[in-house]
Amino acid sequence: MKRFAVALLAALFAVALIAALLELPAPAVDLPAAVGAKMAESGIAHPVTAVLLNFRGYDTLLEIGVLLLALIVVLAVAAREEAKQPAVADPVLQTLARIAAPLMLLAAVYLLWAGAFRPGGAFQAGAVLAAAAVLLHLAGLAAAWQKPGKCLRIGLAAGFLVFLAVAAGLLVEGALLQYPPAWAGALILLIEATLTVSLGLILAGLFLFLS
């Protein structure tokens, strides 16, 4: 009886959701057209990257700040003294990891480069880098991370700091993150490259500081 009531309510909710979806009003602002009109000034050829790093760069800046904050919280919580030995994995996994890791590195660089003119970008490239690190750890080829040293700290914060420095530098021009069209491409590439390294380290750190 209870199960029947729950199923009925769920079905009603699904119908209401579908009805609401069909009733959606037309968007007040035609965003794709607005993005298309400004593409020439954005410094890159792919609309998604242009929105992420140019038109709405402010959001992306805060996003990377949130990720960095999450990692700092993990570091504060997961304080650990003894070094844990990496688990011994079977040789098939180790061989596979040895072959896959360099290819993943290559894929990450490709995704970063492709972000300028087709799907790709810093977040995806960083995730692939992190996945490579996690794979190496799971195969027993890389130890879990202890307290971060100076180099690692700089690497973790570099993406956010470079992004922030560019944003602050552009304040001289008048507005936050309003790139001059001539410089936009180069500045975005600089930000994306450092973001890739930092995101890879942060995402890998969320895994490797905890395991």
Partner: peptide, 12 residues
């Protein structure tokens, strides 16, 4: 979104 989902959602 597919790339992000594959790398972060499913993988990590």
């Amino acid at each position: 979104i597919a790339l992000a989902e594959a790398a972060i959602g499913a993988g990590l």
